[in-house]
Design a protein around this nucleic acid. Sequence first.
DNA 1: CGCCGCTCGGTTGCATGCAATCCTTGCCAT
DNA 2: ATGGCAAGGATTGCATGCAACCGAGCGGCG
Lengths: 213, 213
Amino acid sequence: MRPAAEQVAQSLREEILSGAIASGARLGEADLAGRLSVSRTPIREALSRLAAEGLVEIQPNRGARVASWSAEHLREIFELRLRLEPYAVRQAVPNLGPEQLDELDELAARMLRVGGPGRNQDLSALVELNRRFHGLFIDAAGSPPLAGALRGVTHAAVVTRNFQDYTPDALSRSLHHHVEMVAAARAGAGEWAEAIMRAHLYNARATMIGGHS
Amino acid sequence: MRPAAEQVAQSLREEILSGAIASGARLGEADLAGRLSVSRTPIREALSRLAAEGLVEIQPNRGARVASWSAEHLREIFELRLRLEPYAVRQAVPNLGPEQLDELDELAARMLRVGGPGRNQDLSALVELNRRFHGLFIDAAGSPPLAGALRGVTHAAVVTRNFQDYTPDALSRSLHHHVEMVAAARAGAGEWAEAIMRAHLYNARATMIGGHS
DNA sequence: CGCCGCTCGGTTGCATGCAATCCTTGCCAT
DNA sequence: ATGGCAAGGATTGCATGCAACCGAGCGGCG
């Protein structure tokens, strides 16, 4: 069996990212310990890690809450992503092997399917697919410091459950950005992929906080 | 009395940054618990936090070691800093009050004194002063996400005990960069400060990993 | 009637004991 | 002699119990 703290962290991560635990909700150690059938020690360990990832906020002697972001924070986060993530994509392109390109293809295609208009549209599924898509590029960049700097920051857009707010047009653009990004990666054109990522982020920022710088 | 875990984290931080604990050294929980007269629990807590800051690396079931960086990592870290820290400085300049400007002046002046050539040159003192100088700008930028992304990354250059490697010329440039940065900040010229910070980082990178991109 | 202080319930923080895992060293077989 | 392996020691990971701290609600005082 795997380390318990890791299990707990993974469970909480999924529950937070999927929205099963509301943003700002209180995370009592005793509660979680009972719910997940472990002692409070690995709970504390897990909360500590999640705090490092920026998913929860810990106030001394006052427990942990699911992190919540203000509009101002979101603006700052996009400013960061715009400075780092296009660069990460450019670095990642030469490192992508065939199997990773296939996986990116798969992810982009599935996002097109579940995100496209129609009755089988499933915006909540998009969250996880999108996370894996961006995460794959970030990991492929092969820079632990870069990955560390970005990891805490990509979660924010997820927790705020962004896809609900996209206009149909903006959502369509976003999904096709993914496809184009994979095409650029397959062509080995790092700068092309970088440019698309930049557009992708501007598009996202515009829908989440309203356009202008 | 303050929370014990925080005390432990602070102690270890200072010992690591000052070089009292060598880079790559093993950090046994029982050892530290005995040395700092607390139980292993706050030790684990502190190590976890320091790992989040990037100062130590924890391998499951194999304990914690002081982080060490390869030349490749250093290159990546400077790539990150070049993308974030000049921006942070520009954002910080409008937020700097008189007392903070005075503190920056003080720090820059003291660095000139202890870093200047002569028998009272004290390179190890530079480490802490430099850390506070850069940290003050980062905090003043007023963006928690930005601060979080940078915090793990500014430590690296410190732990590698960089000032030893500076040529006298490069060190002199670096110290005067600080002074000029404060002058720019006092003039309210964010873009000037940003430009100097960029030069400052290029200068540092050149001495640490040898120039070219 | 309003404000301050106090007690009390609940939660976090810390210490300690035990179980699981890993590294080492010595032995045996090839 | 060398490679594999197993037992021992040491260290990390987890559970549990106790102490310190925080917040809420009530009573007393101005």
